[in-house]
Structure formats: structure tokens, C-alpha cells
Nucleic acid binder design. Sequence first.
DNA 1: AGTCGCCTGGTA
DNA 2: TACCAGGCGACT
Length: 275
Amino acid sequence: MPELPEVETIRRTLEPGVVQRTIVEGEALLAKLIQNQTASDFLSQIRGRVILGLDRRGKYLLFQLSGNLVMAVHLRMTGHLILRKNGLSEPPEAKATYLKLKLDNGTELHYVDQRKFGKIFLFAAGSAPAALSKLGPEPLAPEFTFDIFQKRLAGRKLAIKKLLLNQEIIVGLGNIYTDEALFLAGVHPARPVDSLTDEELKRLYSSIRQVLSEGIQWRGTTKRDYLDGEGKPGAYQEQLRVYDRKGAPCLKCKNMIVKMNFGGRGTHFCPFCQV
DNA sequence: AGTCGCCTGGTA
DNA sequence: TACCAGGCGACT
């Protein structure tokens, strides 16, 4: 479900409610959610830890715990993290609740995941599992320059959309923001990377940063499931230029937006503006 | 490089 | 009833 702007919005909405809180106890109701160890080992390791900070790396949320531990949560398609006030009706407990963490102020942090694709890792700071340590650069970081972007794509022949979705090349983009960035840049999703001109690459670099920043400003995109840490939907769905606009007029040229299946993902683009 | 699996639920 | 979905990894 969530891409960088959604995960960042969850991070921001959750942070004030969880930082400096102690995990009093936890309950895990889906064994496969917890990676690399049993659920009971996981729960006993996090019990009594203080949440010192909440960070984001790509689409992962990183709970910095006392004792040099990191709890990394990946929401995949339908994962949610919701902070419930006073453990009761704020908001009501969801059906697919698979992890409950009781905090020392009476709130509960719940992990909810209808499709059960999400994953939670627990590791010592500095020894992240491969999935995390292989991640590419953060596209919104000031040090992510055009030069770095260009070097990471250099010599690749794959279709540009496939590389943009590859979290080892650059983190944070998913299906929605990739389609949006390619539209803004006027680049067809199937273009082999080595066919892109410097001009096109520059437009793409800026477009990626633009759509991700906009997504954060609008608190994420809610097409079906996405909710932030307070249970509120985002608003960027109103601003999307191509995603889920099949048959609607292109905002630049008025021709129809097209949807095709590309690499197993629904792909939206303007066949006139994106060449 | 392409397809399948993981899951559940909403919609055509 | 079939298809589709903000992801990602394991297969051929």
C-alpha cells in the first residue's frame, strides 16, 4: 500500500505519541509477521524497551529502541499502524489486528494488515538484515544530487519504470508515484534507461522529488486502504495527474490517459506527452 | 526478463 | 465469477 509519502506521514503522525514511551507488553497474533525469530522471542526482547525515536528508511518505519535495538516495520500492501488512545474505542479495534503493543501511558500501538503481507524485523542497530542494508539512497535527502541519480542508472538497459520501482536503485517510489513522476517528466514508462537523454534524466530527477514532496504535503494518497497513524486518509488522490485516470483527459494535451499492464503493474500514462 | 506466490476484499 | 489492488521476493 504505502509508498514514501504515506510512510513518512505515518511516521510524523505516530512520532509524538510513541517517542519516550515504554513498551509495557506486546501480543502477536500472526506468526509470519515477525521475521528471523519466533514471536515470543520478539515480544520478550521488546518488552520494557523505551521507544527513543521513530525514523523512516525508504518504505520502512524504524522504531529506535533502548538497548541499541531497532524494530523495522514494512507495511507492504495493506499494513497499517494505528495508535489507539486508552486502549479502547479510539478508533475501534480493526479485524486484522496482528500485533498490539501496550505503552506506558495507556495507549496501544496496533499493527493491522488485511492481506498479511507486512513484515517486522528486530535487530541490533548497525546490523540490519539484507533487505534494509541493500536499500538505495533517499530521493528527498539534500545529498541526493542529480549526479548520484544519473550514476545509479548508468549502463542499465531495463525499462525506466522497472528501475524506479527497484528499491536498491532508489528508495520510496511505488506504482503511483512512479507513474506520476514519469508523466511529469514526459518519459514513457517502457523506455530503456540507456535511451534517456540527459535532459530527460534531469526532468525525471526533479519530477521524482516533486511528486514525493507533494505527496507528503498532501499527507499521502488514499485510493482504498491507506490511513495515517491517527486513522486519517490522505488527500493527494485529488492531485494525481495520471494514476487511476484511465480515459480521463491528459492535463497537458487533453488526449486520453491510457492504462496498460507493464511488468505486472497497472501503468498509467499519456501516449502523446510521454514518448 | 517474465511470472507466480503471498492474502483478502472490493468492484466490474 | 473474474479480475484487480500503494510490494516484494522467489522462482523459471
